[in-house]
């Protein structure tokens, strides 16, 4: 059996409300809250980036996996906000966690699906017998341009998954990927903010790829939507994942647990997989989970997991995702603070 042996998420404590952003630009806050179904989103602290978030999530995954970090043979971080343009994020992580130096490390980028991409490769290494353990991480501190619709959703956080063969808590039953060249959203080198095709990001991009991947996964597995206790999809806003799930035949109650976007925002590479951690936090042995990510450009990775009876041993070994999301330590930023935290203004160089 090959699957997840340890999982962990990390959610920063800082938040900005959709209404704060809406008021800044003269938008109607209620149309964002109802239309996009976004109440607030996470913001990284001044001292947080994709590397520190990945490390915090990976620490939580290690707490649940209860293995010697040295046994991990590969580490992949998927993100569209790696702090360096050239110089890996993963090297910081392995040295901070005592993994390696005998380890394969790579940074992945594929818009919002770099996290599942990292998981897919980590899983494949273990399945092939190449190594006993491999870790895949998705984390982001994404930016939306001031005044752009993305500013309401682009948030910070991430999740880490250690794959192995022993003490598996969620077995990977099936995977599928679906990819085409669809430039619905992009960011060129040296550009601070991404650009997107507006409505083009919907039907021909998000829906086409998730539906394509999801349908193929159902066909491959011979399973039906009603066979699953949980389903989770990439969450660029509140509405899209619920709609795409319904189109695939899932019901609202199957999607509720992993649907964290209304208070988390879109954590890009960490989006659907942080929803997965919220599901694993409450899942029971035997539960089946359906996950399809989406990354602009464009592609989707799909996973079918079956939770094992080991899950109950590990759920309490690290902070739970919804507890981090609802922490009483939350600090709300005003728009001015938010702009400074996200370095959206030009500072003098010292």
């Amino acid at each position: 059996m090959v699957g997840i042996v340890g999982y962990g998420a990390y959610v920063p404590i800082y938040r900005i409300k959709s209404s704060t952003i809406a008021n800044q630009w003269g938008n109607d806050p209620s149309s964002i809250e109802r239309g996009l179904m976004l109440i607030e989103k996470t913001v990284p602290g001044l001292d947080e980036d994709t590397i520190t978030i990945s490390i915090a999530a990976a620490k939580n995954a290690l707490k649940r996996a209860r293995i010697d970090p040295k046994k991990i043979g590969a580490v992949y971080i998927g993100s569209e906000s790696h702090p360096y343009a050239v110089k890996p994020s993963g090297t910081v992580l392995i040295d901070a966690l005592g993994i390696g130096p005998d380890v394969h490390v790579a940074d992945f980028e594929f818009a919002c699906k770099a996290g599942t991409e990292a998981m897919y490769v980590a899983y494949s290494h273990v399945k092939s017998g190449e190594m006993d353990y491999a870790m895949g991480i998705g984390a982001d501190t994404s930016q939306g341009a001031p005044g752009d619709a993305l500013e309401f959703s682009a948030s910070a956080g991430g999740s880490a998954f250690i794959f192995g063969k022993e003490n598996v808590v969620a077995e990977v039953l099936y995977t599928h990927s679906y990819t085409s060249d669809t430039p619905d959203f992009w960011r060129r080198e040296y550009q601070m903010y991404p650009r997107h095709g507006g409505r083009f990001t919907g039907e021909p991009a998000y829906f086409k790829h998730i539906l394509g991947c999801g349908r193929a996964l159902l066909e491959k597995s011979g399973m039906k939507p009603e066979d699953f206790q949980y389903a989770v999809f990439h969450m660029p806003n509140g509405r899209f994942p619920l709609k795409v799930g319904k189109d695939l035949g899932f019901k609202q109650e199957q999607m509720t647990e992993g649907w964290i976007v209304n208070f988390m925002g879109n954590t890009y590479s960490g989006s659907s997989i942080t929803g997965l951690t919220a599901i694993l936090d409450v899942a029971k042995p035997g539960d089946k989970i359906f996950l399809v990510s989406f990354g602009s450009g464009a592609g989707s990775d799909g996973f079918i997991f079956q939770v094992t009876d080991k899950i109950t041993e590990v759920q309490d070994l690290a902070p739970k995702t919804r507890d981090m999301l609802n922490t009483p330590q939350k600090v709300y930023l005003d728009y001015g603070k938010y702009v400074a935290y996200r370095k959206k203004i030009h500072f003098n160089e010292y």
Binding site: D47, E48, D49, A56, P83, A96, Y350
Partner: peptide, 20 residues
Amino acid sequence: LVFRKIMEEGASGIINYGYK
């Protein structure tokens, strides 16, 4: 103790990490 960014060496230098 948590692992955090301590400072940046300006916009083009290395990023310094450590414990907080």
